[in-house]
Design a protein around this nucleic acid. Structure first.
Lengths: 117, 117
DNA sequence: TCCTCATATGACCACATGTTCATGTGATAT
DNA sequence: ATATCACATGAACATGTGGTCATATGAGGA
């Protein structure tokens, strides 16, 4: 990151100022990027997709998406800390489900964009 | 990627099957992840944020988000191929704007999730 | 034509990320 | 107690990514 404005000339200062005041804060941008980063992996997308219609235990998830248990566990951790999924423990099993409808919305919005092309 | 199902025991086959049939295809998951990947960077988030209320030229964008022209150009390229922004050329200037309302929706959905915590 | 300006892009480098392998943890059964 | 099962996690490694620097491109002006 470096404050390096293109010389002097080409700028429309009023446009820039208007944009700056309306922009999200740096912290918000950071957290927003962090959220999308969690959604930005095929394995995690498939996990979320598999959970769209109800909870699954880790082992079932691994089977559903044809990935190793370890890989799934690692990814579930990321999804958990981002509050995209939640856990329900029952004995030695762990049942995962989508955390809220919000996740579903984001997912569907994304799907629509992908479907467009 | 390795088909490695946890031994035999813990699976609920009917749940797994139901999930599998309802899941998005591998290709769709890939493209969905690709879309979110483009949104998964603070610089690109700030660019999209700056464009929420109208087009800006590259130089103005760089000024608005305090990044170098080169960095902004590189990121704009990614946003372009993902069809999140579009260009309007006018002489030697290039004015960028959000490609459609879809991008705005995705952005806002993300913001709401971030705002929750 | 030659120079300058706005933008685009290629090479390179430091850093982040996803998987596997090995091992840890806590619950249940024998 | 101890063995086993489902799940979690740490280390290590290969690959991907975002920035800078240098340079290319293409439009306008002198």
């Amino acid at each position: 990151m470096h404050v390096d404005v293109c010389s002097v000339v080409c700028i429309h200062p009023e446009k820039v100022d208007r944009a700056r005041t309306r922009m999200v804060s740096e912290g918000t941008a950071e957290r927003l990027a962090e959220l999308f980063k969690v959604l930005a992996d095929p394995t995690r997308v498939r996990i979320l997709s598999a959970l769209q219609h109800g909870e699954l235990c880790v082992c079932d998830l691994a089977a559903a998406i044809s990935a190793s248990q370890s890989a799934v566990s690692h990814q579930l951790r990321l999804l958990r800390v981002a509050r995209l999924v939640k856990v329900r423990r029952e004995g030695k099993m762990a049942f995962y489900s989508l955390d809220d409808d919000h996740v579903r919305h984001l997912f569907r919005e994304g799907l629509e964009h992908v479907a467009e092309e």
